[in-house]
Amino acid sequence: MISWLQSHGYWPFHVAWSEWTSTLLDGLLKTIEYAALGFVAAALLGLVLALMRTSRIALVRLPATVYTELFKNIPLLVIISVTYYGIVQFGIKLGVFEAGALSLAIFYAAYLSEIFRSALVGVHGAQREAAQALGLNRWSTFAHVVFPQALRLALPGTNTMLVDLLKSTSLLTVIAAGELMAVGNSVASQTFEQMEVFLVIGAIYFALCYPLSQGLLWLERRVRAGSPLSPARSRRLRAARELLETA
């Protein structure tokens, strides 16, 4: 079939993609690694920043506010260049992977902290009070009352940021990070088929991001419906159902 299309001039591809498969897969894997590590680190840092920003103590709030405003207003590309090339002048040399993941974390933590902060503030103060009145300590109040409700509020924005971060890994190509876009550049420069190469690269990004964002939408719906996400809660609700039915 393929050979027939090729011999009759109907085959649209000029690049011998089969020769590039393993290179592309390497790039794809790198992209996923950058996105996963960058996102987890950004989410953790973002949560810390958000908690700092909701603190009653001004001295705790201030550094978090400065951080957020600073990195929200600097392009990611500049942050990448500084962490990889810039700080070398001060004798700090980060590996490509470290610099790349760190840049993503630094940048997206600023955005995520905004989302998390508004989610934390969005949980009604009376909820904390009700938890306290039940004798829950500060940690339990946060872990079992505030956090789950804030999570619901934060999920839509967080999910958008995750997909955005995944796409932004393509900027790491400027430090030759070996991710998908960098692989694309390398293939394009060797085959001179820019249009075809970048269309294929674009299609791969789409194939990665679309299922991810759909999956996250599904997760949002489940969380909003209060469906159990952990096996422990599933078991608890099952046991409750049995006991309530016999009650």
């Binding site: 009604h124 009376a126 909820q127 009070e129 009700a130 789950p148 409700q149 209060g226």
Partner: peptide
């Protein structure tokens, strides 16, 4: 009331 909205009545 201030029930916890993310939990069922029994929870």
């Amino acid at each position: 009331f201030h029930l916890f909205p993310h939990l069922t009545a029994v929870e």
